[in-house]
Design a protein around this nucleic acid. Structure first.
Length: 512
RNA sequence: CGGGGUGUAGCUCAGCCUGGUAGAGCGUUUGGUUCGGGACCAAAAGGUCGCAGGUUCAAGUCCUGUCACCCCGACCA
């Protein structure tokens, strides 16, 4: 069987991932380690994510703003755990001028900055400094901000979209009068991420709380949504942190309460990144390339005119253009349909496979026969093949126009259903002992064999006991993903690590 | 930062051991045949061999230095 990609998922999942990113025109290496060029199709997907999320943020009272890329070193130094967490991966600006020295362009020693600036790895500290000035009274709270920005973390092992040195994200930062309100905000944003992943990305996730050693540096508690990729690994797809008063104490974010007393504000931060694009690839992609949920697809229906340098070409092109325009006046999934008549020069077969690989939900071919018959021939990308061949269907033009919204909705829910079933089937809950877990994950002949996740009872060990747990998990390349929310009672169960009475259940998985 | 690699045409790579006229496939362009389920034939264009030194009559090839990137570990959205 011949597929559109040079490598299948079964042959090598990592190679397959790279092939999709390249063949679907999502992104490419830039020549600077860890920094990627996001191509128009990949950026279009990110922009759709931005549009959909930004709407939800604004609906919940958040305002967008923008803070600087460069942060004084002294700002970062204020929160001790924060420094420790990020110090090792910081890009630092030390000079402001270049000079020709011995024939080479180098930083001018005379132009050394008095205080080095770091390229933001996240913005808690700069935004906190502004909060400190803006928040004086309980009337200034809550303060609900968000920014869309790029950040830099000097990661050791970059992979396109999944872990890049520079990445795009949104970071929300809020300040509240009480711990309770800040905790609610944290959970509210977690829920927005969960619903967005499920509804827009058709990517099923488990939302929950991270164990202490996986917390954001400086956070009181960290929550995340975790998605299961087709190789069984977990991908952290969004995080929300309750920061308590850690940052406000470090940065003197204080206000006068209604009673006139001085109190520290409780802050939160939350974010999702361009990693989500990689998550969509590894959730929905198949051996013919990307498959995009229609809500996310920059183009939902693409019409490929079958032209062959013949007089009838003009009527074919006109048929495509008018069909695309008509589709665009219709609506699907709550928005106008995004249709495109692909008039670019080039061979129709190449264009067709290009759109298949890019994951367009419905790819149409319109030739002279369709024009004559008044019909539309199309492939649903979510189930593109019948046997070895593309599964083309044909409908009368009017019928296609009428059915298009339903077809797109069907593709959206079919992708979601498939992924949801995979997540459900991929979580083992019946491994009652650590030995059973170890056996399950033990390296076999095929080290990358699909293993999925394991849910086990957990007593929340701390200190040395937690370190011991970490060490055992590390040997299996496992991590604790989250304690899923909402938690059912774990009463009567025993922690698989310590044997102590369980307090909750946690998910173990290999992770990206 | 430790270990292992790779830099040669737009892309993927061969050539290096054993120094002697710069190569292949894909892609691109042109012409022709074919053409609604990734067609075929022919021709053409395209490279200061990562960079800097050195050895030599002669360096892509040997030596030294340097830079970049990739893979495996520690780190991570």
């Amino acid at each position: 069987m011949k597929y559109a990609l040079p490598v299948t998922r079964a042959e090598s999942f990592p190679d397959w991932y790279q092939a999709v990113v390249a063949e679907a025109d999502l992104a490419e290496e830039s020549g600077v380690r860890g920094c990627m060029i996001i191509r128009p199709w990949g950026y279009g997907i990110w922009q759709r994510m931005q549009e959909l999320l930004d709407r939800r943020f604004r609906e919940t009272g958040h305002e967008n703003c923008y803070f600087p890329l460069l942060i004084p070193l002294s700002f970062i130094a204020k929160e001790a755990e924060h420094v420790e967490g990020f110090a090792k991966e910081m890009a630092v600006v030390t000079h402001h001028r270049l000079k020709m020295i011995d024939g080479a362009l180098k930083p001018d020693p005379e132009a050394r900055l008095e205080e080095p600036l770091v390229v933001r790895p996240t913005s808690e500290t700069v935004i906190g400094a502004a909060f400190q000035r803006w928040i004086r009274s309980h009337r200034d709270l809550p303060l609900l901000l968000n920014q869309w920005a790029n950040v830099v973390r000097w990661e050791m092992r970059p992979r396109l979209f999944l872990r890049t040195v520079e990445f795009l994200w949104q970071e929300g930062h809020t300040a509240h009068a009480t711990a309770e309100e800040a905790r609610q905000e944290t959970l509210r944003m977690l829920e927005i991420y969960r619903a967005f992943a499920e509804d827009a990305l058709a990517m099923p996730v488990v939302a929950g709380e991270k164990p202490p050693h996986e917390r954001f540096p400086g956070a009181e508690s960290t929550f995340s949504i975790e998605a299961m990729m087709q190789d069984g690994k977990a991908l952290q797809a969004g995080t929300a942190h309750y920061l308590g008063t850690n940052f406000s104490r470090a940065q003197h974010i204080r206000f006068q309460t209604e009673q006139g007393e001085l109190a520290y504000a409780h802050t939160t931060s939350w974010g999702v990144t361009t990693r989500l694009v990689g998550g969509v690839v590894m959730t929905h992609g198949d051996d013919d390339g990307l498959r995009l949920p229609p809500i996310l697809a920059p183009r939902q229906i693409v019409l490929v005119p079958i032209v062959r340098d013949r007089p009838e070409d003009a009527s074919v092109l006109e048929y495509c253009e008018s069909l695309a325009a008509q589709l665009g006046r219709g609506a699907a999934l709550g928005e106008p349909i995004r249709a495109l008549a692909d008039r670019k020069l080039g061979r129709p077969v190449d264009k067709r496979w290009g759109w298949i690989k890019r994951g367009v939900p419905i790819v149409c071919e319109v030739g002279a026969r369709d024009v004559a018959a008044g019909s539309v021939t199309f492939v649903r990308r979510d189930r593109a093949r019948r046997g070895e061949k593309l599964d083309f269907a044909s409908l009368a033009r009017a019928e296609f126009l009428e059915r298009a919204p339903a077809l797109l909705a069907e593709v959206q829910s079919a992708l979601h259903d498939d992924a949801r079933e995979r997540l459900r089937a991929g979580i083992r809950t019946d491994l009652a002992t650590l030995a059973a877990v170890e056996e399950y994950f033990r390296e076999s002949d095929d080290a990358d064999a699909y293993r999925g996740w394991v849910q086990v009872p957990w007593a929340r060990p701390e200190g040395a006991a937690l370190d011991a747990v970490e060490e055992r998990l590390k040997a299996l390349k496992l991590t604790i993903r989250v304690a899923p929310l909402p938690q059912e009672s774990a009463a009567g169960e025993r922690c698989v690590f310590t044997g102590a009475p369980a307090r909750e259940r946690i998910l173990l998985a290999r992770a990206y």
